[in-house]
Design a protein around this nucleic acid. Structure first.
Lengths: 412, 412
DNA sequence: CTATTTTTTTCAAGCTACGAAAAATTAGAA
DNA sequence: TTCTAATTTTTCGTAGCTTGAAAAAAATAG
């Protein structure tokens, strides 16, 4: 609240309010919008007319209402008008998705990049090229947002902070990519992929439009151990963009020494590498690769092989301690597990529950839900699309009016 | 952004913007306000006139500007117009402070209460009586806010959550107190005292009006171990108001068993009781009481007594592990230590630094400041006054116009 | 004493949301 | 079929807000 407000700000806010209601509550009539938002009928009419000139909203027919009176004219969000592009930059390549503003998938693709090390310009080139090829905006298609999800290994686990010599600042990369998209001037945003995954899983686990718990944490282990912290449904970035980073959460004062130099980090217990190694499925034992080793681990767990069971029991205890820290500090109500943790849940649960038992006894009325994620490896891209969508819905006034006349209401 | 906006909302926001600028940047002229806020001269004139009819702002003279041109008419916040009342409910009694909206102290007092257990009504009676006696609002004095800081032991460490049979919901208590203040209808707010202390220390450690780091944590140990988490300068409440609660943060998987049932909680290492016990200064050894034991501990530390030193070294390591959790999870940039921890800092620092060494090596450009608090036991009351002040400054339109004509500008 | 400079105020214009009344459009009743 | 009631949507006049330009106020410099 540090910038002055004027009537234009009021308009922006109310346009967004109406558009978000239409997006969340399916096709609906102007009366319903007025009732739900608290705006007056006349204002809703004006705002809807504005959204229609921008091509964001269309009439799709009328209700066959049983009662008498003028029928309701139903409005819905036009998917094709605004396009969201999401790019997930991982170790090896770039995965692209384009979607409509409703979130529905339009296209998916994959491209190579020059590797996560070295100067940022080649990476920006690669991303911009991939985006330009993927997007062919039609006459009345507006490119609303490009959201880039950065995978872990770029700068020592996080793309967001300029921490080590290797890698680049996310804002810099965003600006470089934006420069390289000549025709399509569209805002570019770079966000950590674990944070985006957290956001996506959080929304995937509840009905759209429903309010979830105010504080939620996400913990995943795949190519690395990472996580995200959501406060009031928003990503908590922290002072340097390292918020929600759980990899080096201390689990035991005298645990094994971690690569980072500390003792007893969570990574040392639940990283894919550590788990496979401890279960006797390290690179030497299973030279076929990680996927083969993971499959073998699954077989052994189901077969009840003692060493595999012991490994996951210990991992469960460590994860439980980390969750205890998270819950104690942030009062999170739900912990979502992602990556390989999803597959291991049956064997992790006993250890987790043991560590949480004390708090559950102390606060019997406050549940702590430990939930498996449902989106798998696609979570980060989902989250990126969702973020782009939220940005467009938050300020519809950014979308210019359509050239072509907006489609007329369907006569009935 | 889920409620409609209209011109009245614009007015409220801009009134607050101007008032907060005047409050933060001393006596200042309309031109400066216009330049700083981005509002236009004409608007600032109108808004200042509005604030003057409400008695919140006065002209205090003109600048003796060296240059030519019409002199600036300086505006300042009127302290006496709005009164803030803060009440700190501790184990034994109620401490009251009344202050002006500038934060300057007007009065302080103390009262008894019926004890933290049992039904909430007697406590509400006691608070309301104390407030009524303390506040004698003059003809043009507006009671802006009553902020009640609840001390730890009320419901198993936190007043904010309905967790155990003993104690009451903070919202309930707030409503009960509000009912019992007949003449003075004023909003009542109940907040955890550790959170308020965190807020107060955070602001005390930097110049007023200055932006601090976005994420800050506060850890204290006096009558209990507690803390608060500030995100973007605001208290993080969490899902159930337990956010920032550090007492049962796990420090070691196989540490001593805590009262809560878990092993290796922070409390077991740094609570006043645990420290005194471990140093051989428990209730049996020093029957004169806690204060005497603490004084003796200080003497032994300065004298280099080995057992005292070992105790605080271990406490430092435990605190370091907790800080490692806090920093890793929230990316806090500053950790403020309060309560007795402030006195023990010289002996805690080695352990803390040992635990933080790994992260400091991993992120050499990201500082982690561990700072002693400066407000001592008064921190919670300070924070309560600050909160009340913030609320009033956030919505000056709540303050009614003055009956009496506002004082005229001082002629020069 | 006049010109200049700087601050503050005044006033018309442009948006915005609101409230009441009118128009549109259907179902049911005569 | 025709009229009436009910419900949704639109139109229109009003009030409040900020803005921008012009006017007024109040000092200094020459």
């Amino acid at each position: 609240m540090n910038s002055p407000a004027d009537s234009a700000a009021v308009r922006r806010g109310n346009l967004s309010l109406v558009l978000r209601h239409i997006a969340a509550h399916g096709p609906c009539a102007r009366t319903e919008i007025a009732a739900a938002t608290g705006l007056v009928h006349a204002t809703v009419t004006a705002l809807v007319a504005d959204l229609m000139t921008r091509g964001l909203v269309e009439e799709v027919g009328v209700t066959a209402s049983g009662s008498r009176g003028r029928p309701r004219r139903l409005l819905h969000l036009v998917a094709e008008r605004v396009r969201i592009v999401a790019a997930h930059v991982t170790w090896g390549d770039i995965r692209l998705v384009t979607a409509g503003v409703t979130g529905e998938l339009i296209d998916a693709g994959r491209a190579r990049h020059p590797g996560p090390f070295g100067p940022p310009e080649p990476m920006a080139d690669a991303i911009a090229t991939a985006v330009t090829e993927a997007v062919s905006p039609g006459p009345d298609v507006h490119l609303g947002r490009l959201v880039i999800a950065m995978s872990g290994p770029v700068t020592s686990g996080r793309a967001k902070a300029p921490t080590e010599g290797v890698g680049w600042h996310a804002p810099t990369l965003g600006a470089l990519v934006a420069e390289r998209l000549p025709g399509l001037s569209c805002p570019v945003e770079v966000v950590n992929d674990a944070d985006l995954a957290a956001l996506a899983e959080y929304h995937a686990l509840r009905l759209p439009g429903t309010e979830g718990p105010s504080t939620v944490a996400y913990v995943k282990s795949d190519s690395g151990v990472g996580g995200g912290l959501l406060i009031n449904g928003r990503i908590h970035q922290g002072s340097h963009g390292l918020g929600g980073e759980v990899a080096h959460l201390p689990v035991s004062l005298d645990g094994p020494r971690c690569r980072c130099g500390a003792h007893g980090c969570l990574t040392a217990y639940v990283s894919t590498h550590a788990v496979l190694e401890s279960a006797g499925l390290g690179r030497e034992s299973v030279p076929e690769g990680i996927d083969a080793a993971l499959a073998e681990l699954g077989r052994r767990l189901r077969a009840g092989e003692p060493r595999a069971l012991a490994t996951l029991d210990q991992a469960g205890h460590a994860l439980g301690a980390a969750i205890q820290s998270i819950v104690g500090l942030t009062d999170a109500e739900e912990i979502i597990l992602g990556g390989h943790l999803t597959d291991w849940i049956p064997w992790l649960t006993p250890g987790i529950d043991t560590r949480l038992a004390a708090r559950r006894r102390a606060f019997p009325t406050l549940p702590i839900a430990v939930t498996p994620g449902v989106l798998g490896a696609r979570a980060a891209l989902h989250g990126a699309v969702q973020t782009g969508r939220d940005r467009v819905l938050a300020d519809p006034a950014e979308v210019p009016p359509c050239r072509a006349r907006p489609s007329q209401a369907h006569p009935v």
